[in-house]
């Protein structure tokens, strides 16, 4: 299957260098050409103005899209959840996301602040590879749902190292509803 794709895909960049100019400023025809895909595949039908487009990826868009669809068409493994709202369980427990983490925070700071809700099974505090400072978020995994829920309830909106933090679940059982999908939602409810 992948080999067939490889046959179809040919990385030949030099077909039309003149195209660079009109892509740069997102000419009207380029912009409108990209709308259908945006609506259908990317933004899920959200109502919005035409996008300003930029980049060589718009050059041979039809071929690129066909290729991408071929790659992404096959079935994706997903968790056997009901797809409804609510947090998704991880392999060892429940993962929460802390945002607004101070750039000079250390793992110990998070351990101290979040350890009181239960044993922390995993803690990831990512660094910005360019600056060496904390990227701004942390992922914390608890074994029990109640521990994670308490951490969220008690820590969300508090301060860590004088900086306000937000705490929430990292993964969800299903998609979250966006404002511009409300119509579909109310339709479903009325059934």
């Amino acid at each position: 299957m992948a080999n067939i794709e490889a046959e179809a895909l040919d990385f030949e960049p030099e077909d039309d260098d003149l195209m660079d100019e009109d892509i740069g400023e997102g000419s009207p025809n380029r912009g409108s050409a990209s709308i259908p895909r945006l609506k259908s595949a990317i933004t899920g039908g959200g109502s919005s103005a035409p996008k300003k487009t930029k980049g060589r990826g718009f050059r041979d868009e039809a071929a690129a899209e066909a290729d991408r669809n071929a790659r992404m068409a096959a079935r994706f493994d997903s968790l056997d959840s009901d797809g409804g709202p609510g947090p998704e369980r991880s392999i060892e427990g429940w993962i929460i996301l802390v945002t607004g983490v101070h750039e000079e925070a250390q793992e110990d700071d998070l351990q101290n602040a979040f350890g009181e809700f239960g044993e922390i099974k995993n803690l990831h505090l990512n660094l910005d590879r360019r600056t060496g400072f904390v990227k701004g978020y942390a992922l914390i995994e608890y074994e029990k749902f109640d521990e994670a829920q308490r951490a969220i309830t008690e820590m969300d909106g508090t301060e860590l190292l004088t900086q306000p933090i937000n705490v929430d679940w990292a993964f969800s059982k299903g998609p979250f509803r966006r404002r511009n999908l409300r119509r579909r939602y109310s339709f479903k409810k009325s059934i």
């Binding site: 997903s78 929430d168 993964f171």
Partner: peptide, 29 residues
């Protein structure tokens, strides 16, 4: 935009197969 995260990794080296996973992120994530 609805939080769905899809990940595909295709390596044919030593007959590795395609990995395709998807999961939903919360709005916060």
């Amino acid at each position: 935009p609805d939080g769905k995260l899809r990940y595909a990794n295709n390596s044919n080296y030593k007959n590795d197969t395609m990995i395709r996973k998807e999961i939903f992120l919360t709005q916060a994530a």
